[in-house]
Design a protein around this nucleic acid. Structure first.
Lengths: 99, 99
DNA sequence: ACAAAGTACTTTGCGGTACAAAGTTAATAA
DNA sequence: TTATTAACTTTGTACCGCAAAGTACTTTGT
């Protein structure tokens, strides 16, 4: 009966990464500074959480110049989308179990 | 726009405590050993997580003798149920935002 | 030419968390 | 009396989250 925890993804237990992924599910891409402002994070903190998502291949990065300014854009990978969906399904089960 | 994280309860970010609360929402009470087996935890680990929930007044404890054996039974407090429901609502919002 | 500011990090350091394993207390059973 | 069970508490280790400071590179302002 530890099925309650099955499919709950450790990576997404953290609220910041949960938020990042949910933003990147709805928006195809998002820039570093936009995410930073949306979630009110220090840049170091944001960079660290993104790095965790990258390490797990849940997020991909694109670096470019927008005008004359460097810009880093993040996207959820197909693998990231799959993993996150599975996580949400696990949460949904818990919710349905109770409501 | 950090509303994504609003109402996400830090206490329930942890998978074990999430599971404990979801069990105690569905079952009025649960015994120490039952929870331990359900979630496949060491007793120290279970005790620690329950202690966290107790400290926050989300769970109450009842100690008694069942036959001749001591038995500790846990329940979600009204406050705990309220807090957990709010947390699930926050998760539900995230899910609905995406589906 | 030089200083200041912006972008996107990385590093540092601290306090907190998660966990297993071992130790503890108190009662019951053999 | 020794062992067992229940429910913890303590200990020790490893990891995590975060702010703040430092870094590298570029652009903008004077």
């Amino acid at each position: 009966m530890k099925s309650i925890l099955e499919n709950i993804n450790k990576i997404f237990e953290n609220r910041v990464r949960l938020a990042l992924m949910s933003i990147l599910m709805v928006n195809d891409e998002a820039e570093f500074n936009a995410l930073k402002q949306m979630l009110d994070l220090t840049d170091g903190n944001l960079a660290a959480h993104i790095a965790t998502l990258e390490r797990n291949h849940y997020v991909s990065v694109r670096k470019e110049y927008k005008g004359r300014k460097p810009s880093t854009t993040y996207s959820a990978t197909p693998e990231g989308k799959r993993a996150f969906t599975e996580h949400l399904n696990a949460l949904e089960k818990i919710i349905n179990n109770i409501h």
